[in-house]
Design a protein around this nucleic acid. Sequence first.
DNA 1: CGCCCTCTTGAACCAGTTCAAGCGCAGTGG
DNA 2: CCACTGCGCTTGAACTGGTTCAAGAGGGCG
Lengths: 234, 234
Amino acid sequence: METLMAAAASRCPVLSQASAASRETLMRHALLRHVERGTCIFSHGAAAESGYILMGGWIKITRTQPCGAISILTLHAPGETFGFADSIRRLPRSATAEAATDCTILSVSARSICQTMRSDSSFGNAILSHSFQQNDSLLQQLEALKIFSGIQRLACFLLRHAKPGNGRHIVRLPFHKHLVAHYLGLKPESLSRSLAKLKEYGVRTVPDGIEISNPGALEALIGETSDIRHREIA
Amino acid sequence: METLMAAAASRCPVLSQASAASRETLMRHALLRHVERGTCIFSHGAAAESGYILMGGWIKITRTQPCGAISILTLHAPGETFGFADSIRRLPRSATAEAATDCTILSVSARSICQTMRSDSSFGNAILSHSFQQNDSLLQQLEALKIFSGIQRLACFLLRHAKPGNGRHIVRLPFHKHLVAHYLGLKPESLSRSLAKLKEYGVRTVPDGIEISNPGALEALIGETSDIRHREIA
DNA sequence: CGCCCTCTTGAACCAGTTCAAGCGCAGTGG
DNA sequence: CCACTGCGCTTGAACTGGTTCAAGAGGGCG
């Protein structure tokens, strides 16, 4: 158990920047949990009592409109953290977190986070730089939504998640395509069609995921934007 | 001049949370500038040497793809800050900042920001909470892009920027509609058409901006999302 | 006045949605 | 063992929101 915690600490970019002493403090009040797919970790509007570190699996962060429409804001991979901002500010949850796959998560109490931030300035810096990074990835998503078409966004997504595996690049999708579609701002049907179109670019659906035989082609696809008209805007 | 600086400090949510002493330090190396519309404050890839506090006017933050397509990531109103993240991290600029109108800006050297962060923990907290807020607004933008139509996004934008002026709500648009369109992820023509459609909802273009006679109607428009199908997703 | 620039309008077009049907597969129960 | 059912995914056809390209209206300015 203790070793697992240590492993957590070294994997997580936030924790790894904290001093050994503060890691110790944080871990004393941390809780390791396994949850299965679909489990709600916290929900929009609830009181924020913990920050979470994702050890395994994928988490989706969503928000639901009064009318019932759901938007998927972010997806988190192992090693990433989520739910820190709310708990540090002690505000109600600004969104809902749900396990997109079976997950292993480490929850750290808000109180110990705040305490550690006060006592260990390097931990504070880690939190800040983490927030900046989150910001960057949101900006990237925004950019993609504003100027790329659905197919281009899909190509981006595939390239970003591709792991080079013996020669070819493979994207493992441990969760439903539903989820990917919504994350990309598409309907499932459109995603399916987009994937079909990407066959010409060397993208094939294989048993254990999606295979990319020619990453260069995808990059070229992203590069060519139809919207050349607005090179210059006031 | 000094009084103007003081005014700056009290207006800006980041500075106002800093101690008097750190404000003093920051202001000693601050520089007040007036720039006219179209001036580039900093550009993507350049070294980040300052954070900026916007005293008057509007700033747009953009990013340009290799192919020449430009996306407008954020718009900043008076009182807001921009360019802090890059300068604190000492990374190259992650985007370009340009004056969308004539602007008055206060630039604070990266060095004095970092110095102050080290000496005054409440300033560090202010920066952190600022980053969190930025995060929130990006999430809101993302959400809007993923589930709202262009007209709904426009309605959101109008409501958010409406100032109640003697009975009726008025949105002052000091900059080109071009800019608003791109910010909303639309083409100028589409924005124009959307505005035309919003006439039925009590939105009129008046000499000094856009008038909203019935905010409730706009809220209702945002509330009704066609995409009810996906109330429940895995 | 004529020129430039912003914004609007119109008509054809395209990406993505909607609704509906069909496929393949796992789980269930006869 | 095979039919039955439910679910995720794909495919097809009609439709819609937004884009594209082109033309025109209005306003400020030399």
